[in-house]
Amino acid sequence: MAEALKETMSSAWTGVKRGLSSAPPNDAYLAWNAPGVETIKSDEEEKTQQIKDVMERMQKRNFDLHRHAFRATHVKTQGIVKGKLQVHSDLPEHLRQGIFAEPGKTYDVAARYANEPYLLQRDQEPGPRGLGLKVFDVTGPRLEGVDESVNTQDFLFNNAPSIELTDVDTTLEIMSLREKYFDDPAALGRHLKLRSDMIKQHAPYMLPDTNIISHAMYTQSAFRFGQYYGHMALFPVLETQKAADDKVKNDDPSCVLSDWLFDYFAGKEAKYEFKVSNDVSVSHRQCTHRNQIQLGTDPAHHPTEDGSVVWDEATSPYQSLGTITFPAQDSFGQERRVFWEDRMSLDAWRGLAAHRPLGGINRLRKGVYPHSKKTRDRINVSKSEDVRSVDEIP
Results as ranks from 00 to 15, higher is better:
G15D: 00
K17S: 09
K17W: 09
G19E: 04
L20R: 02
L20H: 00
S22K: 09
P24I: 07
P24Y: 02
P25D: 08
D27N: 13
L30E: 06
A31T: 00
A31Y: 01
W32T: 01
W32F: 11
A34L: 09
A34G: 11
P35F: 12
V37E: 05
V37W: 07
V37M: 08
E38I: 02
T39Q: 13
T39N: 14
K41R: 15
S42H: 10
S42M: 02
S42K: 14
D43I: 10
E45R: 13
E45G: 14
K47F: 03
K47N: 09
K47I: 13
Q49T: 13
I51C: 06
I51E: 03
K52D: 09
D53L: 13
D53I: 10
E56S: 11
Q59K: 03
D64P: 10
D64V: 12
L65G: 02
H66G: 07
R67W: 05
R67N: 15
A69E: 07
F70N: 10
A72R: 13
T73S: 13
T73A: 12
K76E: 11
T77S: 11
Q78L: 15
Q78V: 09
I80D: 05
I80C: 15
I80N: 11
K82M: 02
K82R: 02
G83Y: 10
V87P: 01
V87W: 04
H88E: 04
S89G: 14
S89H: 10
D90W: 05
P92H: 10
E93V: 08
H94F: 15
H94G: 02
L95V: 08
R96I: 04
R96C: 03
Q97G: 00
Q97I: 07
G98E: 05
F100Y: 14
A101C: 10
E102V: 15
E102R: 05
E102C: 03
P103S: 07
